[in-house]
Design a protein around this nucleic acid. Structure first.
Lengths: 214, 214, 214, 214
DNA sequence: CATGAATGAGGGTTCATTCAT
DNA sequence: CATGAATGAACCCTCATTCAT
């Protein structure tokens, strides 16, 4: 009656039992299909078929289509957090470098989890769906990291002091996402370094010099 | 049997008769609902109800849900073109100004056609849907205008000569859309001028000075 | 969006429009099938097929299987009320006769609405289903009429004064229903008069003479 | 492969082992749930959960839902037979007493096996279900005992000679069941003796005196 | 002797579409 | 020019059943 929750695996057994493997297969299938077709236009049948399991398995593991999607989003939060953790600046890292590194992390994330990123962006502006809170959380998390590093720049006087770091964070976020997804969509063969370098240049310009521009 | 096309109104009747009014009501209803819920999760019943007409009327006027959506997109292209036309730089306008003016046009468009903008952005990264071509066209059109003006800046030596104007156009587009929709979503009471000014500052920095940075 | 309610027919149009006819066909089909197989074992497909309409029509008219069943029950209340109304005793009717006449009405009802009666009896003791209230109402209504007439007998001193008319009403109700349904099930060819006469005899005995028995 | 039958317990293990306990738990759970919701609306999951065992256990012990229900019915037949055996009249018992004693047995049965009784009554009038034969058998058994005792009364001239004992048996059966279940449903706190006494009074009246009434 | 993850046929429901009015 | 009752394909979901452990 209540198989809807992840089972805490017993310590002696290896992690990644049958159930967890099934869930992962379903996540992979769902994220791809929904990113391509949208939530409402993707059927549970399609997801199950692509995952190589029976339809009933979706319901046994998640309880329903909505719940699968919600779980998918939560899984996405974790994935992003993992990526951002790797971009934590080393103690003595130069602040401008710290900023461009987090932008690189964003590009890497989108390169690695392209389908998830597309899906997230498609949902980003639908403010009244039940899983909006989770989507918003992901955005806030990502933008927050950018804003933090901009704040450091302001503190150290490395950019103009009146910079609205919150709005600038949002702007950089949109810039990175748009450029990175355009890259994946239109020129996927282009090396990631090229994208990152250009983006870093632009960010540098955007930050500008301590003296207010113009 | 084929009432799908706009009828040329009979001379004795005034333009914008009952039919045109009905179509407009349906557009308004559809764009709002679909921007909130997505295409696949919005029903013809809902659209008709919100428009205050019977369900059959949708079919009488557009022929089907897909056709309504297609017409909606075309209508969106026109709306964007209208807005951009107003941002055509006067003959002698300073190039940097010409750029910031088109960004302003973008913000204005999103402020005026918020639901349409949300809908378009949600579809922006779904590359394999039947109406993707139209969505891409709108994006290309908008980015194209930005890129053109960046090209002018490069020509005149007002920015660093190696600027990838195409990629930068895409970046500015993402920046504007993200900031503008965040504004509508989180701080709709904030005056549009404030948004535009901040955006212009950032664009200026991003363009930088003729000497390549770093 | 709200076609779930009966439309009040416009006065100039004849009662029994298309919609009402559809609803009646569905009632007939549902009552027969459910009385034979039970609610949970009867499918909407079966009901629609027997009624000669598409499955969707059930949902268009009632909103769901549960609601169809609830409406069916309410319809049953009306049918019973109609039958009982015809058994209202004439002003000067002899009290014992008044009692046996209502028992006859019960037999007639079961003979006329056999399927409905079976269905009602099957639900009579399931106290925690959502439509139990309606079923109970029907029972209470029927037993109430019997009890009333027993009360008259007590008042006029035509039976023993300590008769628990409420419990006796329930007992007579159970007697009538059981005998009548057994008749329909095992000897449907037997004339209704025979059943009624035997039942009347027994009721007479049960009421007994004014002096307490034994 | 065929664990469907009770295993003769191995000599060293005590009778009524784990297996028998499991079956009993499942009977209890099933009879309660099915009496409340009906067969078609009760799931194996619910039964297993209420019994406190895993779903597979139902299949291990009974082979399927239908088989569990069939076993339940057989168990019901046994329970009723047990109760009726206790009401076998002592050799010299007065015939009228013998009748009221069997009615008491009926009330006791319903008081003791309330859920089973409700379930049986719900199925009583569904003539075309696979287990109808078993239900009919139980009814016939119960009514048969009543009819036998009425026959004795007729034989000994203690009631009117033209009594249709078969029909009267059915009537008394319906009376007892209805009154007893109404008692359990509406006034379970009332002592069983009160119910029985009232019922005995009514039965006495119904039988009446040797001279035909009216 | 028992478990519970997985299955898939089938049931309830939705909804784009048709058509008589 | 518009309506809304009716339709049925396709959808989400349930649940009896199986089977590896």
């Amino acid at each position: 009656m209540e198989p809807m929750n992840m089972r805490t695996p017993t310590p002696e057994k290896p992690v990644g039992g049958r159930r967890e493997a099934t869930r992962r297969k379903l996540f992979d299938a769902a994220v791809t299909l929904i990113s391509e077709q949208g939530y409402g236009s993707t059927t549970v049948d399609e997801i199950a078929e692509r995952a190589g399991v029976a339809k009933g398995t979706v319901y046994y593991n998640f309880g329903g289509k909505d719940e699968l999607y919600a779980a998918l989003m939560k899984w996405g939060v974790t994935r992003l957090a993992d990526t951002l953790r790797e971009a934590v600046p080393a103690p003595g890292m130069e602040p401008r470098r710290a900023l461009t590194e987090v932008l690189r992390a964003g590009v890497v994330f989108i390169g690695t989890h392209e389908a998830l990123a597309r899906l997230l962006m498609a949902e980003a502006w639908r403010t009244n769906r039940s899983w909006y809170a989770t989507v918003r959380q992901i955005r806030t998390q990502a933008i927050g990291v950018i804003t933090e590093r901009l704040d450091v720049l302001v503190e150290r006087g490395l950019t103009r002091p009146d910079l609205d770091t919150s709005l600038a964070g949002s702007a950089l976020f949109g810039m990175v996402v748009t450029v990175a997804l355009d890259w994946r969509t239109l020129q996927p063969e282009r090396p990631i370094e090229e994208i990152h370098t250009t983006l870093a240049h632009m960010a540098d310009g955007l930050i500008g010099s301590p003296a207010s521009p113009r």
